Simulated assay, not measured.
Amino acid sequence: MAHRKALSLALPAPLLLLAALTGCDSAGSSVDAGEPPLKGAAIGAPFELTGETGDTVRWSDFDGQYRILYFGYAYCPDICPTDVQRAMAGLKRFEEENPELGAQVQPLFISVDPERDTPEVLREFTDSFHPRLIGMTGETEALKHVASDFGTTFSKGEVQPGGGYLMDHLGYTYLFGPAGEPLAILPTDLGPEAVAEELDKWVR
């Protein structure tokens, strides 16, 4: 897990504070839930990437829907599958308790490892966590631009003798509103129940 912790310092200080508040709120602190923690944050911008079916996917394709967004990669040995599993398990709980609202939440996964994460690999990865999770990726430079627009970063680690490598990246699970506005960081570190509780606060 060291690669995510080492890069956490790259996250803008205000976003780190908001992330902390989001997590504390889910744990039952006295933080006022009246305003989304990320309200007004400069996170998000239009993009075009290649989806897991090979078709172009645009941020605007999901206008009118809430969006869960995670940057990671399918070959990640620990952090990505853990975060995505908890986020999607939390979404499933929310869907069970609030079917109509749950249907308005579109989960998205952006791979920062285009060398290995082909559409086929992405489909297998996303299908293992949630039937509606959509995977996408793109050229490295395009991905860096998108990552920057969404307040995150990534880099390729040292290639090992056998050709394997890790991708250093931040592991935040964002929740956006129907107009693409940032709302909160989902507390995947606290488990699916906390994720479902956070969704229940902001998906209305």
Rank of each mutant, 00 (worst) to 15 (best):
A6G: 15
F109W: 13
G180P: 08
K144T: 08
F71T: 05
D55K: 10
V121D: 00
E193S: 13
F154D: 01
L133Y: 11
S111H: 09
L170D: 11
L170Q: 15
H130R: 03
D189Y: 12
R58D: 07
A147Y: 08
D78G: 00
D61T: 02
H169P: 06
L91Q: 03
T140M: 14
I185P: 02
D32I: 05
L17S: 04
C24W: 14
D25Y: 12
S155L: 13
A41F: 12
E115W: 14
G72T: 10
I134W: 00
L11M: 15
E48S: 14
D117N: 00
M1Y: 11
E115A: 15
G54C: 04
S148F: 14
G44V: 05
L69K: 03
A19V: 02
V203F: 10
E124M: 12
F62V: 04
Y70C: 10
P131L: 06
L15G: 00
E198F: 06
Q160N: 08
P37I: 08
L49E: 07
G171Y: 12
P131K: 03
L122E: 10
G164N: 11
L7A: 11
A87P: 10
T118R: 07
L166S: 05
P114F: 09
R116G: 02
Y165C: 08
Y73K: 10
D127Y: 10
A147T: 02
G51H: 02
P36L: 12
L143F: 09
G28H: 00
L91P: 00
A20C: 04
A142Y: 03
I134R: 04
E158G: 00
V31K: 04
Y165A: 08
G64E: 08
V203Y: 07
R93Y: 12
Q160L: 15
G163Y: 06
G51R: 00
I43N: 05
Q85I: 01
K92H: 10
M88I: 06
M136Y: 05
H145N: 09
D117T: 01
G64L: 11
G163P: 06
L101N: 06
F129C: 10
E95A: 11
F125I: 01
G138Y: 05
Y165F: 13
E35A: 14
S8W: 14
Y70F: 15
Q160G: 01
T82W: 02
A179Y: 02
Y70K: 02
E120T: 12
